[in-house]
Design a protein around this nucleic acid. Sequence first.
DNA 1: TTGAAAGCGCTAACAA
DNA 2: TTGTTAGCGCTTTCAA
Lengths: 331, 331
Amino acid sequence: MTKRVTIKSIAHDLGISHMTVSRALSNSSKVREQTRRKVLQRAQEIGYVKSFAAATMRGEQTALIGLLLPNLVNEFYARFADSLAQHLEVEGQQLIIHLSGDDIDKERQALLKLREIQANRVVMVPAPGVYENQKGYLQDLQIIQLIRQREMNVAAGAVLVDDSGAIVQAVAHLADQGHRRIAYIGGDSLLSSGRSRLAAFLSGMRLAGLEPGADQMITERPSFAMGYHSARGLVDQGRVTAIVCGGFEISNGALHACLARGISLSGDISFIGFGDPSWYRWIGGGISTIKIPVTSLAAKTAEMLVKKDSAEKNYDFRHQLTAEFIRRRSS
Amino acid sequence: MTKRVTIKSIAHDLGISHMTVSRALSNSSKVREQTRRKVLQRAQEIGYVKSFAAATMRGEQTALIGLLLPNLVNEFYARFADSLAQHLEVEGQQLIIHLSGDDIDKERQALLKLREIQANRVVMVPAPGVYENQKGYLQDLQIIQLIRQREMNVAAGAVLVDDSGAIVQAVAHLADQGHRRIAYIGGDSLLSSGRSRLAAFLSGMRLAGLEPGADQMITERPSFAMGYHSARGLVDQGRVTAIVCGGFEISNGALHACLARGISLSGDISFIGFGDPSWYRWIGGGISTIKIPVTSLAAKTAEMLVKKDSAEKNYDFRHQLTAEFIRRRSS
DNA sequence: TTGAAAGCGCTAACAA
DNA sequence: TTGTTAGCGCTTTCAA
């Protein structure tokens, strides 16, 4: 293994002090032009790169942004990560991605790692749950919560989506079409998103003069499997004529279940998904959905991430974008 | 801003030397049990985490793995990243993801960043092209090329896919169905994958006794847009009855074009995609495709990544998994 | 069982 | 214009 290339090795090669090399590389004016050129050339030759570790140890900010997502398989998360990465690349920031699988312990682990590496900012979709012992897992971390919000007892920004309007609209639309037995599958109340989406669904039903039976509203820890099983149960029982989904994973799971059962979504049962994967429009003539503005979310997040570069003060804000009800053939 | 918590601050609080703290935290036997307990407790209290920067500067390996992908929007890449992240998490490794957009300059930039941060291993889907001046961009980096292979003039491992068999099979199948004018849309010859897939297509045609016209084989720098335009052109000209795709992005683009044109893929034109996004099976009765084993690829890659932890020697191997032709209604 | 010194790569502050 | 020193957080080596 060849030794690392450092300013000292350059200095040694050129018979000058490492300080001169440092100055030459950082465009200081206090270097003779000729010296600078020699240094730059030598640096090129032997492939010098500045040591991140040394810079960090001296107290420089790291330009590392942590991104903590449930997974990357769901197109929403993948698109968000993709879009955010592109924004950050422009700023010269690097993205460190951790997947939580919506598991709070993994989330804690990931935050620890991010703290070690001194990622100063973290964008996270919080997992459902609470920390057993909340000793400074978030210390030194500037946090932006995405989509969902959890009590953090620490200043934390939030980029959220107001999906109430879209959900109410979706329910109203179903009622208009004559649906009476409309089911809802969503996340449980551990997270802000679970609570508010359910509330929106109920409010939509009430506005339509409908009263949902308790067995028509399934709220549990959200996941693909949960969506799958819930939808299959509803379909098999045959007691509902429409399904509204309240989560990305849930939506895909539920859709999968319906398709696997051979249900016609433009006939047998009306279906309203959540999020808007590129392929929803091509399935069964098009899946109606609550569309979440991924790109805007990423742009807004990037903006927040960067803006605070200057004002290092309290990281505490709350932005809300709006979801949209997209009507296609499935409803 | 509170000052960083270090072993020195703990030492100061406890009125002992930072060396004792260091020993206590690293489970050295040379510490009095009582002292150790006090240190551990204090560390807990004030949320101490070991400094990544300091460790790195001392010469410790970083546990950072760079992942360089064209994008995360394509489900294949997203699944690969997801899967790899899960494997690596177990090993305590962190994934730093950079997106190249298949642009060689961005790729170069990303590699530089990875070198700065001392990510010792990098998994990359090489972008088409060559470096203008190849001065040690890869120095100190242990590289695994994924899917495609490019001349690197540096020892680099490779985890590839042998898709020839599947492509030949796909063409044979189309010929069996009576197709004579079969088109191919794939990447150009700058990359190994582009060359080998085209070769496989040609060989399949030859075996079926068919001679493809030059205008039926479109090979360019691969992208979604390229697939989209190529397919639209083919469809509009109406000179072919089947399309075979030779790339992930291309496949999605081409499929999109066909769907947007309202083509029936189980009637008008036969279509064989590339990669197997979860939704291909639900579109138009199911899209036939060349399926690439994502999960196995990630597993194999993780294995290589970890195995070499022990033997720090030459990073030079070549593994090949096999693609599979999946027949659905679109062909 | 504890502590002091040195060094990893770099730059601010001072000295020449 | 160039060089020397010190210190960021940590562990290895040597000394007490």
